[in-house]
Design a protein around this nucleic acid. Structure first.
Lengths: 219, 219
DNA sequence: TATTAAAGTTAGATTAACCTAACAAATAAA
DNA sequence: TTTATTTGTTAGGTTAATCTAACTTTAATA
């Protein structure tokens, strides 16, 4: 049985390795994502190594073992199923679900998750458009493009967000964006790559940083 | 903000004071209900006193303060709402809901509970027949009789159970009993108060201890 | 390549929640 | 009312997860 804390370390390690193809998981980055000091993360890594959940040598690379990864994926599955529940059944807004799911993902009951999955009709994506792993731990990987890669004059459909932070999501809402919305790229500024986009008739100017955090399907 | 552990102490203190009218909450009993040693409970009591959640003097009585009680009731509210959810929406059986709700009751999100309450249609009772406190912390107290108080030849309706342990609940199910079932008391043994009861045509012999843990409404 | 900067590690301390063992107070029994 | 038993408390120790400060290794840069 894993502690709440151990689960969070595994989850974060998985997130780093998925988010960035570069695969370079470092103690400092891990620590900063978990809001702890590097020394703390280092200690936990030793503990997780002893438990055979990560492969790790002093000053070396950090990778999840097969077991570690399965555990991490299970947590992600729980997180996303809860998000779907909050959004679809309890009328939570898009940018509110993450925080509560951070707590719910640690509830220990296989039966609960199976039943929840069934209750929701076996959803494939969470409210942010991220795929929900199945019980076996398989994830449908969709190699997604970001809004930043769309060229002037083209249209696309928003399918997910990269950043799940509340501040970002609220910004997204403010621009009038949501999952499945059509986005038209009206212009791109050469100098700083600012984009003017149109969503449901609403025009907005967005930064490159913003555009890089919106996943889209190009028509 | 209360820790998981502190919440459990408050909840248990409330349970003791409600279950038994005698009101004698002792360190040992508290400790045993929480599966910790008396020394541990004692330490926590000092901590809760400092936080003004319990009133307590050395060797004296333990009582919840107003704040402590409100906190405890909020946890009970969450617990029972989650039980109702598990039972009604996720098809958990009657005897399975308690354990999972023990975890879910600690999720911190007022909005979540409000939404859940609404989603369930503001239920007044949990699957065991226990009243769900409202948001203000008010509980509909139903001074309930137990099956042990029913006399021979009389009929009654089961409305709740006193003991929420899995073993007891499974026994209840085995006897063919459930909330709202009609029970007829066919005979009571003078010597040891064993009862023969009939439920949906099924006759069973039950001990006094069993009968004392079934709450009923007498017709 | 030698030096500096960044990243990672170790040592020693702290806090919450728990323990055992010894002691003190209150209550019940003789 | 004195003694024995139960109940409650204190002291000192453990573990998980955190910290700061000092140190070491690796990587970057001059």
């Amino acid at each position: 049985m894993l502690s709440y804390t151990e689960e969070n370390y595994l989850k974060t390690l998985l997130k780093i390795s998925l988010d960035k193809e570069k695969e370079e998981v470092g103690t400092n980055e891990l620590a900063s994502l978990l809001s702890v000091k590097p020394a703390t993360a280092n200690e936990m890594l030793k503990k997780l190594k002893k438990k055979k959940l990560v492969d790790y040598e002093k000053y070396g690379k950090i990778t999840l073992t097969k077991t570690g990864k399965k555990n991490a994926i299970d947590i992600v599955r729980k997180h996303r199923l809860w998000e779907a529940f909050l959004y679809e059944k309890l009328e939570f807004s898009w940018d509110e679900v993450h925080e509560v799911a951070e707590q719910l993902e640690h509830i220990q009951s296989e039966k609960l998750i199976d039943k929840l999955d069934k209750f929701l009709g076996h959803p494939k994506f969470d409210p942010h458009g991220d795929p929900i792993p199945n019980k076996k731990g398989e994830i449908k990987i969709q190699h997604k493009k970001t809004l930043a890669e769309v060229s002037v004059g083209k249209s696309c459909k928003m399918i997910a967000v990269k950043d799940n932070s509340r501040s970002f999501l609220q910004y997204v809402v403010k621009v009038g964006l949501g999952i499945n919305n059509e986005i038209k790229v009206l212009s791109i500024q050469d100098y700083d790559s600012m984009m003017v986009i149109e969503v449901n008739g609403q025009r907005s100017s967005v930064s490159q940083k913003f555009a890089e955090n919106i996943f889209v399907a190009i028509k």
